[in-house]
Structure formats: C-alpha cells, structure tokens
Simulated assay, not measured.
Amino acid sequence: MATAEGWPISLDHCFMRVCLDAAFGRPWHEAVRRPAVRHMTDADLARAVAVAERIAAVPSLLPGLNAESLRLRGKAKR
C-alpha cells in the first residue's frame, strides 16, 4: 500500500514507529518495553491500530505524523 500510494515511508518498522509514537504521544519505547507487541495492553494496541486505520483512510496524514514522530525522537529535519 505504501509503495502504491507513494507514501514517504514504506518500511514496516517505520510505519509501526509512526503509529506507536502517535498512539503513545511520545517515543513508544519510553512507554512500553520491547518488543512492543508483546508488552502493550489491549487499549495501547487499539490506539495504534486506530492510527494505522486513519492513515490508510487519509494517507495525507502520514507525512505530518512521521515528522512528529521524528521530532519527538530529536531526529527532525531542520
């Protein structure tokens, strides 16, 4: 889907980072132990899936969510 839509990120782990960071409102690894999918609550997972579903429905959200994820991690482009 990412490649077909021309999304700015296409690797699964990058998409997961964006969804999890948005779901937690901070870098996900600060909120839950690694690997996230084994340590998240059902509510955490539901929030992350909701973010992914919003992105799938409105792909134009992805660049902003990716930029926010990178900003939260101190990796924003200047």
Rank of each mutant, 00 (worst) to 15 (best):
A23V: 09
A23Q: 06
A23I: 07
A23T: 07
F24E: 02
F24P: 00
F24L: 05
G25N: 01
G25T: 08
R26G: 04
R26Y: 02
P27Q: 05
P27F: 13
P27D: 10
W28L: 00
W28G: 05
H29S: 11
E30T: 08
A31V: 07
V32L: 02
V32C: 12
V32A: 07
R33V: 12
R33Y: 09
R33P: 04
R33Q: 07
R33E: 12
R33G: 10
R34W: 15
R34Y: 14
R34H: 15
P35I: 14
P35H: 15
A36W: 04
A36E: 09
R38E: 09
H39Q: 08
M40N: 00
M40D: 00
M40K: 04
T41M: 05
T41A: 04
D42N: 11
D42K: 13
D42V: 12
D42L: 08
A43R: 15
D44Q: 06
D44Y: 04
D44M: 02
D44W: 02
L45R: 15
A46N: 06
A46V: 05
A46H: 12
R47P: 03
R47S: 09
R47A: 07
R47T: 10
R47H: 06
R47M: 07
V49A: 00
V49I: 14
A50L: 10
A50R: 05
A50Y: 06
V51C: 13
V51A: 07
V51G: 06
V51T: 13
A52F: 10
A52E: 10
A52L: 09
E53S: 01
E53K: 13
R54C: 09
I55K: 05
I55M: 08
I55D: 07
I55N: 01
A56P: 14
A56C: 13
A56N: 14
A56V: 15
A57Y: 14
A57E: 15
A57H: 11
V58C: 11
P59R: 10
P59M: 01
P59H: 04
S60E: 12
L61T: 00
L61E: 04
L61P: 02
L62F: 09
L62G: 06
L62W: 03
L62T: 01
P63I: 06
L65D: 01
N66C: 12
N66E: 13
N66S: 10
E68V: 13
E68F: 03
E68D: 12
E68L: 13
E68A: 14
S69T: 06
S69N: 04
L70S: 02
R71G: 02
R73A: 00
